[in-house]
Design a protein around this nucleic acid. Structure first.
Lengths: 297, 297
DNA sequence: CATCGAGCATAAGCTCAGCTTACGAAACCC
DNA sequence: GGGTTTCGTAAGCTGAGCTTATGCTCGATG
């Protein structure tokens, strides 16, 4: 019977593409991973990977085995979840990952209700950029995460994670109130305020401009939307801001709704949905979101 | 993450009831099994077993974990199956278990066609009593087995195995031609020819008589149905014989159909259904059965 | 009721799976 | 063509997990 630890390495290889990366993710030496994958191939009796340049790539058989590995690991995660339930339910550490805006808007109420209803839970919040969430979940650094999903960016459906939709917002183009231009095309010649490179916001803004037929002149790199809006109000540039990012609207800023939608979901490792603490967190965030949206209207 | 080897031990404990039996099944010392299960409990953080007299029993949490273990192990078996398919499909050893009658009637044609169509397969047939089949499958002594399922005996649906129905027969009461009695009640005073104790045939005959309101006077213990019919023809007693058991009917034997049905299925470990060799065997047996039945009418 | 055997747990010790570091080869980049 | 990255192999060490030995408890049996 196949060794599950090795299957996990193979699955991670499918995602991380290189043995060295898998080794880093598992805090192993690259040699150890290489050895274990070689042994897995011997067990399997088929070539699972082949050299490709100075790296490796999965053979079709390897990819097929990865699919099975996903189900095996999800089943193990589910087993863990029912054990956690048996262990007395809502106790222990839960690590929640959220993007900065959510930490300000959605999470406070959710955390308060969780702390009140389940005093046995040790909640830990990590502010993280959305792009880093999936990896953090998979590497078991996080248990629950708030993730984004734009139309513009390839949302790569992830077989190792389960996501349940939470809310959908419109994205605005924030421009100084006195500005004359309207909409994305009009911002072609404007100075742009983007997130720091590598963040999802950065990518989305680039893609949006690209779709409008130009590359923006990037002038500032700021992640915090309050700060971004302050810069816009000061007339220093334009920026993309999602609905959640505009808590109080300054009179010096005009918000032009764009046909870009931002969907937010709560995510967890597949199989961990049965974990009572995970389920409680997801539910608390959902309730807090509902409350927050009701408070806005 | 839970250790799969330990989960397997727990699952087998659920079936075999005692640590000692699990140890025997795995060719381990009882101590090793005990240690591993203790470690599994530590990993789980819940009591999974509790002492019960001089044995152990599963706690509810333990039973719940066993259910998850089943799905994990089935997924691993499925992974094995697709690897076998990738390995070039129909090569390697396949061990088939069948009851004696099937070995005579159904299997020859099936084996011939398998050997012809898939020369890479190494077929091994083991004659085994039906009651021993499930264990042999689980312990990986067999890959495919022909199993029985009477209305009379508790067919205990087995979550670790998959069975697909193959054929259904009537069971006859075989009596000497000159005998006057008719049906089961009339055989109350007769001498009975049964299988050796412990076999399924033995149990079924006892149950049938029990249902008719008496315990049979057992005179002979014979498993081979040809031999049984010879004894009946010689006037030495009566016996239960399934349809497959009566190849050629002697004039000295009268067959009275009973309202007892015997269903035969092909079975394999859950998840192994995708194994090309296993699938080919099951299909060959099915085709051979069809041919055999067509030859009878 | 005393004895015996079956089942389980713990202790102590040994072996091998699987990790590490060290090294070499091959491929991309400048 | 050096420098860097990636992978594989060799050699060696450590700990997980096996064994045997021992003791305890429970139930069956004469």
């Amino acid at each position: 019977m196949l060794d599950v630890r090795r299957l996990r390495l193979l699955r991670d290889l499918a995602r991380l593409k290189t043995i060295a990366a898998v080794a880093r993710a598992h805090s192993y030496s690259a040699s150890a991973v290489s050895q274990q994958l070689t042994l897995l191939q011997r067990e399997a009796g088929v070539e699972l990977l082949a050299r490709d340049g100075r790296g490796v790539r999965l053979t079709p058989a390897g990819a097929a085995l990865v699919a099975h590995a996903e189900t095996v690991l999800a089943a193990l995660e589910a087993a863990d979840a029912t054990l956690a339930a048996a262990r007395g339910g809502l106790r222990g550490m839960v690590r929640i990952g959220a993007f900065p805006t959510a930490v300000r808007t959605l999470l406070p109420a959710a955390l308060a209700s969780l702390a009140r209803d389940h005093p046995g839970l040790d909640l830990m919040v990590s502010e993280l950029d959305p792009v880093a969430m999936p990896d953090a979940l998979r590497e078991r650094v996080l248990d629950v995460a708030l993730v984004h999903d734009y139309d513009l960016v390839p949302a790569a459906p992830d077989p190792t994670l389960d996501a349940t939709p939470l809310l959908e917002e419109t994205v605005y183009l924030a421009v100084p109130a006195h500005a004359g231009e309207l909409g994305l095309p009009g911002a072609r010649e404007a100075d742009w305020i983007l997130g720091t490179p590598g963040t999802l916001c950065h990518t989305v803004a680039l893609r949006a401009c690209e779709a409008a037929g130009y590359t923006p002149r990037v002038r500032h790199h700021v992640d915090d939307f309050t700060a971004v809006l302050a810069l816009v109000a000061a007339g220093l540039g334009v920026a993309l801001v999602p609905q959640l990012g505009v808590a109080e609207v300054s009179a010096a800023v005009r918000l032009l709704p764009l046909p870009i939608r931002r969907r937010t979901s709560t995510a967890h490792r597949r199989g961990a949905g049965g974990h009572p603490a995970v389920a409680a967190c997801a539910e608390a965030v959902r309730a807090a979101t509902e409350g927050y949206l009701r408070g806005l209207t």
